[in-house]
Simulated assay, not measured.
Amino acid sequence: MGKKKKSLIFLGLFLIFVILAVAAPGIIPVKEISCQSQFGPCRSELENSLKTFEGKSLKEARAGIKSLLKADVLIDSFDVRFKLPSGYEVLLIEKKPVYALWDLGKKAAALVDRQGYIIAIVPSTNLPTLKGDNLFEGVGQTLGEEKLFALEVLSQMFQFYQVKEGALSKDSLIIEVDDGPRVIFPLQGDKGVLISSLRLIISKLESEEGGKSKLAIIDLRYKNPVVTY
């Protein structure tokens, strides 16, 4: 076989390979789609939605999977990987709720992630909860700085004093410490300084006989905290 003929054969095979590589994603059907999150297998409703792309072409399925995942407010990030012989593996990081808002008018709770993004509306929750009127609109909303600040303060109060509820007023966060005082926080400032000041005041007064129980209000909205008995 001459060199020229061999070259033509190799060129023909190369062209066939290129054509198949370009056309295959639009022709070959997807046989299986698997899904894993940082918590293990993906939630059943998401897996069922992904299964609807099985049987579609690789190209169509990939586009549909990406569109589905981008629209899911519970997903923080994702990766769609091709899996031999003709499937996809979906790896994703789901958002995790760490705070909650209870709207007195709606009588429902909004679950909030660490960035202040509302990821679900539920009838009840065990998370530390900030209560008030007109606190949220719905899933997908990003909270303003003051509400997120109040939630972060409440979370720290839960760590130190196991307080699970706080009330949001127009310009302050009000928290009742069990067997202790009512604490009024501003809605801005240095959270670390505010919590440290509160702990110092309570610790100092606890050293006195019955000090903690005698406290009525600790107002931290001022440069010099106001303590009322």
Score class of each variant (00 low, 15 high):
residue 75 I to D: 03
residue 94 E to M: 06
residue 187 L to M: 02
residue 180 G to M: 05
residue 221 R to H: 02
residue 144 G to N: 07
residue 194 L to T: 08
residue 152 E to S: 13
residue 49 S to Y: 03
residue 113 D to Y: 10
residue 188 Q to R: 10
residue 21 A to G: 11
residue 120 A to T: 09
residue 197 S to Q: 12
residue 122 V to E: 15
residue 193 V to E: 15
residue 92 L to N: 02
residue 37 S to Y: 04
residue 125 T to M: 05
residue 87 G to D: 09
residue 193 V to L: 15
residue 183 V to L: 06
residue 149 F to S: 04
residue 209 E to P: 12
residue 154 L to W: 02
residue 127 L to S: 12
residue 227 V to L: 05
residue 162 Q to Y: 12
residue 69 L to E: 05
residue 19 I to D: 00
residue 60 E to M: 13
residue 131 K to R: 11
residue 153 V to E: 09
residue 173 L to R: 05
residue 192 G to C: 00
residue 203 S to N: 11
residue 218 I to W: 06
residue 26 G to L: 03
residue 35 C to V: 13
residue 155 S to C: 01
residue 223 K to Q: 14
residue 52 T to F: 13
residue 56 K to L: 14
residue 40 G to Y: 06
residue 124 S to D: 15
residue 31 K to E: 14
residue 98 V to P: 01
residue 53 F to Y: 11
residue 30 V to H: 04
residue 179 D to I: 00
residue 114 R to G: 12
residue 93 I to Q: 13
residue 50 L to D: 04
residue 83 K to F: 12
residue 188 Q to G: 09
residue 189 G to A: 06
residue 156 Q to M: 10
residue 174 I to G: 02
residue 212 K to E: 15
residue 5 K to R: 13
residue 215 L to S: 03
residue 159 Q to E: 15
residue 174 I to W: 01
residue 191 K to D: 00
residue 21 A to K: 08
residue 199 R to H: 01
residue 65 I to H: 02
residue 168 L to P: 03
residue 60 E to I: 14
residue 94 E to I: 00
residue 40 G to Q: 05
residue 154 L to C: 03
residue 16 I to H: 06
residue 149 F to Q: 03
residue 160 F to V: 14
residue 2 G to R: 08
residue 56 K to P: 07
residue 210 G to T: 11
residue 19 I to T: 10
residue 188 Q to V: 09
residue 52 T to E: 15
residue 191 K to N: 06
residue 5 K to Y: 10
residue 188 Q to W: 01
residue 141 Q to V: 05
residue 9 I to W: 08
residue 227 V to H: 02
residue 119 I to F: 06
residue 157 M to Y: 05
residue 193 V to Y: 12
residue 226 V to E: 04
residue 145 E to W: 08
residue 93 I to Y: 09
residue 131 K to M: 10
residue 37 S to P: 03
residue 48 N to I: 01
residue 78 F to V: 01
residue 175 I to G: 07
residue 70 K to N: 14
residue 38 Q to C: 01
residue 146 E to N: 13
residue 86 S to L: 11
residue 120 A to L: 11
residue 208 E to N: 14
residue 95 K to T: 12
residue 63 A to R: 15
residue 156 Q to T: 06
residue 160 F to A: 14
residue 149 F to M: 05
residue 220 L to E: 01
residue 145 E to V: 14
residue 188 Q to M: 04
residue 116 G to Y: 11
residue 121 I to F: 11
residue 175 I to T: 06
residue 147 K to F: 03
residue 164 K to I: 14
residue 86 S to C: 09
residue 169 S to T: 12
residue 124 S to G: 10
residue 184 I to F: 05
residue 192 G to N: 13
residue 163 V to H: 05
residue 128 P to Y: 07
residue 9 I to S: 03
residue 94 E to S: 10
residue 205 L to C: 07
residue 204 K to C: 10
residue 58 L to E: 13
residue 114 R to N: 14
residue 103 D to C: 01
residue 182 R to E: 11
residue 94 E to N: 04
residue 201 I to M: 09
residue 114 R to C: 11
residue 117 Y to A: 10
residue 166 G to E: 00
residue 158 F to M: 14
residue 2 G to F: 07
residue 16 I to N: 07
residue 106 K to P: 00
residue 46 L to C: 06
residue 133 D to E: 15
residue 122 V to M: 10
residue 200 L to T: 15
